[in-house]
Amino acid sequence: MPLRLEARELACERDDRWLFEDLDLDIRAGEIVRVEGPNGSGKTTLLKILSGQLTDYRGELFWNGMPMRRARGDFLASLLYLGHAPGIKAALTPLENLAWYQALAGETGDERARLVALEGVGLAGFEDVPTGQLSAGQQRRVALARLDLTPRPLWVLDEPFTAIDRDGVVALEARLVAHARAGGCVLVTTHHELRATDELTRIRLGRGGDDGRH
C-alpha cells in the first residue's frame, strides 16, 4: 500500500502574519515527522491543514501523488487524527466512547477488542466509569486507545503526550516507533523530547525564514 503525503509551497497567513511560507514536505511510509517550533508558530495549524481540516492555505497537497481534492475519501480512510482536545465525551464511559469511534470508522467492532485496547493504555478496571470522573491523563489515554483499536497507516497527533505520565510517555514513544517500522507514518507535534531514531525527522516552524527540514 503506497503511503505518501506531499505538500508543495505550503503557506498560511493568520492575522496578517505568515505562519509559514514555501514549506515543502514529503512524508513517506516508515517516517516519524516531528513538527517543532515555539508556541504560536503554527504547529497545530499545519497539522490541521495536513489532515484536511483547514482549507484557507496556499500551496498544494498530494496524497499518493493525487491532488488532495480528488483523493480525499481515500486519504480520510487512511487517517487517524488526535487533536489538541481529546474528543472524548465526559458523560460516556471509555467503552462507549471507543464504540462510537469504531462505528464512525464503519466497523461494528466487538467489546473484547475495546477492552483489550483499554487494557493496552493502562485503563483496565476503568471501562465503565464515566470519563468525566477520570483524570486528564486517563482521558487522554482513552483517546490514545484508538491508535490500537482502529488501525490506520497515517497518524496525525497533536500533542499526544500532554498529561501522560512518564511510563505512559515511554510506551507511547515505543508505539510510534513500532508503527513507523511496520510501514506506517506518524506526524506529531510535541514539546516532549523524542528519542532520536532512524525514523525520526523534524520540521522546524517559526523564527522568520528558516522554515524547512533539518
Partner: peptide, 14 residues
C-alpha cells in the same frame, strides 16, 4: 465542538 468530537466527525470517511 468544545471537546473535539466535531473535528473527528469531520474527519470520518462517512
Amino acid at each position: 465542538y468544545d471537546d473535539g468530537s466535531l473535528e473527528q466527525l469531520l474527519l470520518t470517511p462517512q
